[in-house]
Structures are given as C-alpha cells and as structure tokens.
Simulated scan of single mutants.
Amino acid sequence: MYKIAVIGDYDSIYGFATLGLSICPVRTPEEAKQKLWQLAEEKYGIIYITEALSAELTDVIEHYKERTLPAIIQIPGVSGNTGAGVEGVKKTVEQAVGSDIIFSQK
C-alpha cells in the first residue's frame, strides 16, 4: 500500500496528521526539494505540497509530471489560495478526458 505525505510550512500542514498522513514541515525551498526527492524514492503514492512551495520547485515537479507515481498535488497554505492547485487539477482532467469539464458560472 502506498503512503501519503504533505510538505509545507508547519502551520499549513499540521492538521493533516490527524488524518493519518505523514507531515513533512520544511522551512526553505531547498529543504522541500530534498524532502520531495526522498518521499518519491520511499514510494509515496501521493504527495501534497503547498502552492507557495510548489512555485519554487517547478523543476522537480516537472520531473514527476509524466510519471504515474507519485502524484504531486498542490494545496493552499495558510497564506491563502493562489489558484495554482485548481488550475493543475483542471489541466490534468483536460488531458485525461480531452475536454474542459469545469465551467465557471456567472
């Protein structure tokens, strides 16, 4: 069975521990990069990462984008939602089904 981890600043991720996820608090983008490589090697199936950190680690995330595992999913941090996570999911769905299925209602 694959494990699930969350990478980000402590305040953004500590609540995920109550769900049984492995939390990996980091302070710098370099520390996050090393942790992301480590988790991928340890066969984590899903790695959640805060949007702010993922913006700093685009090279590492791109490395795993075409692979099945790990799935790297952006989540908002305590500083707010940038919309990058939703946009990433939208692009993935478009690739999978060949069409945009998320419609904005005005």
Rank of each mutant, 00 (worst) to 15 (best):
L36A: 10
S104Y: 02
V60L: 08
G83P: 03
I61G: 00
A52D: 13
Y64K: 02
I73C: 00
D9S: 08
A55H: 10
E94R: 08
I47S: 00
G88K: 07
I4N: 02
V26F: 05
V86N: 04
E42S: 07
P76H: 09
I13L: 09
V86C: 09
I61Y: 09
E66D: 14
K65T: 00
E94Y: 07
I61R: 03
K91P: 02
I7F: 08
I13N: 08
T82K: 08
K43A: 10
F103T: 04
C24R: 09
Q34L: 14
T82Y: 13
K90R: 14
W37R: 11
G80V: 14
V93E: 06
L57H: 11
G98N: 06
V89Q: 03
Y64R: 00
V6H: 04
E30R: 15
V60T: 13
R67Q: 03
A40R: 05
V97I: 10
S99H: 10
A17R: 14
I73T: 01
K43M: 05
K90W: 06
T82N: 09
T18M: 15
K35G: 01
V89R: 00
G85Q: 07
T92F: 12
E41C: 02
G98M: 07
K65V: 06
I13E: 09
A84N: 09
T58K: 15
A96E: 01
L57W: 11
I47Q: 04
P70G: 06
V78E: 14
L36W: 03
S54D: 09
I101C: 01
K43T: 04
Y64F: 12
C24I: 14
T28D: 11
P25K: 05
V93T: 13
A96K: 02
N81D: 15
G85F: 01
I4K: 00
Y64D: 03
M1C: 10
D100F: 02
